[in-house]
Write a protein that binds this DNA or RNA. Structure first.
Lengths: 199, 199
DNA sequence: TTCACTGACTGCAGTCTATGTACTGATTCA
DNA sequence: TGAATCAGTACATAGACTGCAGTCAGTGAA
């Protein structure tokens, strides 16, 4: 997987420096009042370099978000012999929910992301889009896992319903001012609601 | 509703001119190769004026999209005495689906929008965001209509599941190259899937 | 060890979106 | 008719993002 040694390590180090600088600045001054130039400056890097690591300014906060999708895909791939569709789906979603609030990197990146996603429109839009592409992957994997049970459209709809319900519930909880535990419960509740329709 | 007479009419005329110019240019040159300046120019208006009518460049294509939300809200408000939750929800969603492909303004705005939303990331993100705010309104209305049946989280989750399922199904169908009729069927199918969980 | 090569990073100039400000002139209202 | 209002304008500016032409450290093979 790793291409080279030192060179690659240096690259990851500047990437990490950019992320950390960005997070710190966002927390200090608020998302809208931080420019790419400032982030690059704080990371002691040229502004041009920022865009070498991230396509857009928003993407700094969505870094490492792909990890969770991989976990869900893995959960689908690992399904045991007699396991039902609903069980697999719930397990995959559970995987993503759990990871959202736990292992997600240094400090409170996940928490900050959640807070900002609920308040900054541009970021919100970008995050939703990420979810959509993740959905496509999940749907495809799910259909391949249950080829005789699901057609393409049903698989998409099912995953879409899950992700849609969970994120809507999470957002509502967040905007209500709930803490991490309550948000998590809301997500679980939403998941259970949709899971009924697969029985 | 109407504030003034002539002044307001003129305003709507330039707004319409901007929309039509934008649509035409987008179809000709492709979304990415059309600048705001060009649109304004084609509509014989100052570039500054464009942003007086639309917040962002993407919003030209999302113009009049709010109308459909109003229809769904209306559908919820108009529910008859003994009508069940699932019935009301299905009726509201049906309203939006139907309107998506029919009455949506001059020429093929809806079709173009669908095509571009499936291919242009920036537009996709913006559209998803619109859906999210629409969801919030719907959820709120729905909860008020069934206060003893739904708590805030469940209402959000339910609407989120519906919208999520329907849009995922639609997108999958679109990317598969389906025609309007098939896309519509996919949306209906997704809706039916989620409607089960409310029974 | 040497040397060609790759690739991360830089600086600069340029495009385009989006916004603040101050102004013009046409409606609208008193 | 005079005053207020408001769509549209010209001008200036910030800031995101891109293309291009480099530099230099790290790498891999002779």
């Amino acid at each position: 997987m790793e291409k080279h040694g030192l060179r690659e390590r240096k690259k990851q180090r500047t990437r990490q420096a950019l992320i950390e600088a960005a997070v710190r600045l966002f927390e200090d001054k608020g998302y809208d009042h931080v420019t790419v130039a400032e982030i690059a400056d704080a990371a002691e890097v040229s502004p041009r370099t920022f865009f070498l690591h991230f396509q857009t300014r928003e993407d700094v906060l969505l870094a490492n978000a792909d990890v969770r999708v991989d976990l869900a895909l893995q959960a689908i791939a690992e399904r045991r012999a007699g396991e039902q569709l609903s069980e697999v789906l719930v397990r995959a979603m559970d995987q993503m929910i759990a990871d959202t609030w736990d292992s997600d990197l240094p400090s409170g990146l996940a928490a900050l992301r959640a807070r900002l996603a609920a308040s900054v429109p541009a970021l919100q839009a970008r995050l939703l889009q990420r979810y959509l592409t993740a959905q496509a992957e999940l749907a495809q994997a799910l259909q391949r896992a249950f080829p005789d049970r699901l057609d393409t459209i049903t698989a998409s709809a099912l995953v879409g319903a899950m992700v849609g319900a969970i994120s809507a519930a999470a957002l509502t909880a967040l905007q209500r001012g709930d803490g991490p535990g309550e948000v998590r419960n809301a997500m679980r509740q939403a998941m259970a609601l949709v899971a009924q329709s697969v029985t």
